[in-house]
Amino acid sequence: MGESDQSAVAAGEQTSAADILESLIETGRSEMERETSGLLLSGLSAGLDIGFGPLLMAVLLTLSESGYGDVGTELLLASAYAVGFILVIVGRSELFTEHTTLAVMPVLDGRGSVGELARLWGLVYVGNIVGGVLFTVFVVTLMPSLGVAEPEAFGTIAQKLVEYDLTQLFVAGILAGWLMGLLAWLVTAAQETTSRLLVIWLVTASIGLLHLPHSIAGNVEVLFGLFLSPEVVFLDYVAFLALATAGNAVGGGVFVALLKYGHVVRGA
């Protein structure tokens, strides 16, 4: 944190909306200019790291005497879900759902092109998905020898995401993307690591508590079910990934990027 940030914190000042927007635009522009290999590796790292959230959920669900529907268990699982996001966001890895807002800002401001946005989205998304697949394969191969989570727990978690019908899946995906877009905005506004941790936990635990389909974390959750539960089939996985991704993009791009940019620019 720089001297200006420290003085602002000391004075109890809040970051203005215009400053948050400018920071998001600069960050988005910087990410657009990164080399292909850097974006892919960062996306891969995020896809791997975010898998620890669903893994911890399965372990806790195995250990818990209660299941979904019990308030204490639901809150505990939602907090475990948030762990993966904390690892990714504090660790500065690239997450597709953050970029549904972050990378859209330079395009709206005329400092980036649609082609650059598509390149960034594509590279980060592919890295995230491949990372999630690798994490899932690693855990599925290793879990039987560790004995810390039952296969039924992974299947139960996956079922929460594939039981939506197609319309519900898309709409719920919009809500998840909306929350992730707000997270990108709020993390930029937060001036201390502790504040950022609290914001990340609050937003992502809410996604977990509501069982909203996050395309990247959900990629791992549904893959676990696909590998370990006979009730989850490949078509469920494809439908989930396609509609959750589309919904996330709409939620972050329209309900956060477009609206936040519009109200800040018009307000100025």
Rank of each mutant, 00 (worst) to 15 (best):
A17S: 15
L186A: 14
Y261I: 09
T194H: 11
P144H: 14
L117K: 11
S30Y: 14
L142Q: 08
E3Q: 13
V140F: 07
Y237P: 09
G28P: 10
R111A: 02
I216L: 02
V232R: 03
P230A: 02
L226T: 10
T100E: 01
S16A: 14
G112P: 10
V250L: 06
L63Q: 09
L169K: 06
S64N: 10
A205V: 02
G12C: 09
F170T: 06
G247P: 08
Y125M: 05
F240G: 01
V254W: 07
L146F: 14
A205H: 02
A11D: 11
E35Q: 13
T15G: 02
A184G: 09
A18N: 11
F234K: 07
D49W: 13
A176I: 08
L197T: 10
L63D: 00
A82K: 00
S66A: 15
G51W: 06
G67C: 11
A189D: 10
S66Q: 13
V59F: 00
R266V: 13
F255E: 00
V104L: 12
G262D: 12
E26A: 15
M143Y: 09
Y68V: 06
I129L: 12
V148Y: 07
V232N: 01
F170C: 02
G155T: 10
H99N: 15
L108G: 04
E33H: 11
